[in-house]
Amino acid sequence: MDSEYRFSHKHILGLADLSAEDIQVVLQTADSFKEISSRSIKKVPTLRGKTIINFFFEPSTRTRLSFEVAAKRMSADTFNISNSGSSTVKGETLIDTARNLAAMNPDCIILRHPRSGAARLLADHIDASVINAGDGTHEHPSQGLLDLMTVREAKGGIAGLKIAIIGDIAHSRVAHSNIIGFSKMGASVTVSGPATLIPPGIEELGAQVSRTVMEAVDGADVIMALRIQKERQQDPLFPSLREYAKFFGVSHKVVAAAKPDAIIMHPGPINRGVELDPKVADGTRSVILEQVTNGVAVRMALIYLIMGGD
């Protein structure tokens, strides 16, 4: 690594803003922090006295808890606000709410919001660091990074791998961050799903599009299934969950077309039997729970790098 290098980002808004070198540093830092979570005393004093606010406008169990666990293991003080408890329900704008939070001098705000660009909007209006925990259908950078970490662990590296992402590419911020992240790190990314869920110009983010799921997973090192949101049936984007599972679900047959040592990933929560066959989800090649474990390490690394990195 270049000795001049310095992780210089104040905010983590998307993987589009990070260089390959930045991503490398996050993954290395996460690797070194992962061990903390396996100690009997799972806490280091690194961020003692720092204040982190989890500001979640969408329901989330995994991501919110993961950020909170990460912050607490670094000894930061954490506070949680959810949409129903916040003053935006009383008509306050996002910017005003954020300014009020900022007036309490937090060091970092972690935002989950249903609108694309919301994290950027927040970052433009307050002094604290902002970590995007998912904004609309734009990006979910910490998820992308934990997926990169998980693949790197399982495969010993990322460059040269074939990653197949199957499902609702159009509405998935996870897919967007993963396409950007994996292609930046030298992997090839192929996406597939119903044509109604493949957005225009996805190639410009770095993905190739396969017409069939079987073609997409052919020779793949990694198969990632994406969550199907049930309400998309009404949009109308596909006829039924039953038909979706039959033609686009990741089954044993699909897995058999990938490399023999291919791993299976899913960002959760899983619709069992829809996008992912339960036997595949629970099979030996699944690294889905490893993703969750790594999520804590990656988030510890992100918080550390933007707030305490020096």
């Binding site: 589009a16 225009p200 110009g201 996805i202």
Partner: peptide
């Protein structure tokens, strides 16, 4: 406008 930029920004086109 619908297209690659809308996809990148996660905005509906």
């Amino acid at each position: 406008n619908d297209g690659p930029l809308a996809t990148r920004l996660g905005l509906r086109g």
